[in-house]
Design a binder for these strands. Structure first.
Lengths: 211, 211
DNA sequence: CTGTATACGTACCGATCGGTACGCCCGTCA
DNA sequence: TGACGGGCGTACCGATCGGTACGTATACAG
């Protein structure tokens, strides 16, 4: 009879936050890292489960398909994005311009480090152009909401044409995401806060709206 | 002896522009369409050759790998991009602001139609984060050159801080590419020309540069 | 008619893809 | 102690991936 202690221990140490003991949690965390860093299509389920130290059936017991796992990853990403966004909002109550600038400054800082990979939601939408793909659905919903919030903040700021300013800010943000991963350290994303501030200033209708 | 006319004719009709007779040309054209519309990773070589009406060895006689085919596709895309860009430049000699606005207006128009898929070069860089991937190399070179040109135009315009204006314009352009494919018809890319014009106006140093 | 180069297709390779049928282990509660 | 159910792994599936060894048809030169 083989010694029980020699058998590879199945139960992991009591749930450190770094290495969750539940298979589904380790899968979520590993998928998050790999999907974000390498892209969704580039990562196979085999790689996810082996890096997570689990097996494929554990994945498919919690997620009906790889596409659904990708959607779950993006839902997590979405939640974290809004936590991050609302943090900037909460830091400057009632001052939308300062809220926005804090968000943009932190975004620009992140977008300038090497190996920056942009926004996971934007990247997923680029990878999955099919309108009914579950991952794309999550990405589109996030971006629609972001647009809504930005236009709302432009309105609060008293912009002459809040829709134009809000959309302009969205263009700058998306531009920072992709050019951050295109250019790396000295990239154009560094100009984001200054450019956005200049655009806001020019949109506040102190001089009559050009028409 | 079998009738020669019954044998499936190998030679295609004499080189219509729509359906080139040479296998390599049909592959290039088909790869271009599929890679752009669906993404590079999403398209297999089998699909390319079957849609092109040729076979895999014909592909691998002209391209050493799928990655090299992707790079060739992007080189074609790059050439077409500059043709398009220089067209706007040539339309308004010596007037960089008008050149830019024409380019941006046409870009905005294209980015607002349904099923728009953005910039093939940007998309490829999102799909291939590895720095040494041949496709990404082409994309990065294109973007670096675009940045150079935009900063040059900002200088010509007499901007107080041409690097900031040039980078701001690049952010807006990249933002239009990705948000065009995220939002479809009524998307924020429609605000591109107006926002860019406002940013240019605010960057021309008529009022003292904020410091 | 023959040699040769060009241009292409047939048929196949091992590897990896996403996904699943099935069984074992272990803590819980009777 | 025994029945049970949740939680997980072993071993496998057909399909598709990128890539290739080898044969064949045709145009042209001699």
């Amino acid at each position: 009879m083989p010694d029980k202690a020699n058998v590879k221990s199945r139960r992991a140490p009591p749930a450190s936050a770094e290495r969750p003991t539940r298979a589904v949690d380790r899968i979520r965390q590993t998928a998050r890292e790999l999907f974000y860093r390498e892209g969704i299509r580039a990562v196979g389920v085999e790689e996810i489960v082996s890096r997570a130290g689990v097996t494929k059936p554990s994945l498919y017991r919690s997620f009906s398909s790889k596409d659904e796992l990708a959607a779950a990853y993006l839902r997590d990403y979405d939640a974290e994005f809004w936590r991050y966004f609302d943090e900037a909002v909460a830091a400057h109550p009632g001052k939308p311009r300062a809220q926005l600038l804090q968000f943009l400054e932190r975004l620009a800082r992140r977008a300038l480090v090497a190996n920056y990979r942009g926004c996971g939601l934007t990247n997923a939408a680029v990878e999955y152009p099919e309108a009914d793909h579950p991952a794309r659905r999550v990405a589109e919903a996030n971006k629609r909401e972001l647009r809504r919030r930005l236009v709302g903040m432009a309105t609060e700021m008293g912009a002459a044409a809040p829709a134009v300013l809000g959309d302009g800010l969205l263009l700058l943000i998306e531009g920072a995401y992709v050019s951050g991963q295109l250019f790396g350290e000295g990239g154009p994303a560094g100009a984001l806060p200054e450019v956005a501030d200049r655009l806001i200033e020019a949109s506040l209708g102190r001089k009559p709206a050009r028409r």
